[in-house]
Amino acid sequence: MNVTRGFTGRPRVDDPGLPPGQYDAGDDWPVLSAEVTPELAPADWTFRVDGLVEEPRTWNWEQARGLPDSVYEGDIHCVTSWSKFGVRFGGVSLDAFLHVVRPHVAATHAVAYSHTGYTTNLPLADLTGGRAWIAWEYDGQPLAPEHGGPARLLVPHLYFWKSAKWIAGIRLLDHDEPGFWEQNGYHARGNPWEEQRYSGD
């Protein structure tokens, strides 16, 4: 252990909800997107699921909103080391979309992509079983453009760069293909509880 002289740090909080190396950002919700925030109206938003599926499908705003509501209440964790507790997102479980397109048994991974062209890769298992959403509300209000509105992917059990803003689609694959940050050295999976920040972690 390399102790830094004179460094004491914040008062220790024994918070079992805080993954290693993270701190509680409180009311802050930093915005870290690398591209220009797009001017994307709900009427222009679409969401497509294709690749290794029985029936590729594109939903528009009204059609997606017509699926059963689902809420995520919990925490989110950013690789830059802030975590945010007790957030509330409203949207639709990704399971509802996958149920319609019916993934092939050969599908093991997915690339989620944004209307900006941003991409991120995920194991399919991280997108199913009630652990991923298409979210359009935050705290009961429409999701702000800088936070990915009108709709973003939400995969709160992984670092938040996996929760692609301005979500445009998900392509199911039988192999893993690195996305935007993953090609820039970030970890393929990004589990905050194992501190999978960079490739090799």
Partner: peptide, 21 residues
């Protein structure tokens, strides 16, 4: 790598070594 069809676009990537990271 998969390249999505989009109206907007993020800038291209600059290849760097991730060896030291």
């Amino acid at each position: 790598t998969f390249t999505p069809p989009t109206r907007f676009a993020v800038p291209g990537r600059i290849s760097v070594s991730n060896r030291a990271a």
